[in-house]
Amino acid sequence: MSERRSKIDIIYDMLKAINDKGGKILPTHLLYKSNLSHKRMKEYLEHLMGKKLIEEISVKDKKYFILTEQGSKFFVDYMKIKEFTDAFGL
């Protein structure tokens, strides 16, 4: 049975998707990897950009999202939080 993902799971999945792509990802790939609707992904992107965890850049007229240094550190912290959450069933 698949459970509904929490906010922390979604943010973790998004950051992991960017990290797995070497810290830079196309919006369409991110949409696919994070398994969200376009509307919800936009909300999460705004949240992450607001926190300066990711940035939007343009390379040869293509839009990418990149992990900032703060975002990379945050991703490591999130991995620990995810492990802690899973360990205690939170």
Binding site: K7, I81, F84, T85, F88
Partner: peptide, 18 residues
């Protein structure tokens, strides 16, 4: 400390109560 740090990062109440 781990739970409190999780609360400070995520701002989620479940970590606060934990």
């Amino acid at each position: 400390l781990a739970s409190y740090k999780a609360y400070k990062i995520t701002d989620m109440k479940r970590y606060k109560y934990y």
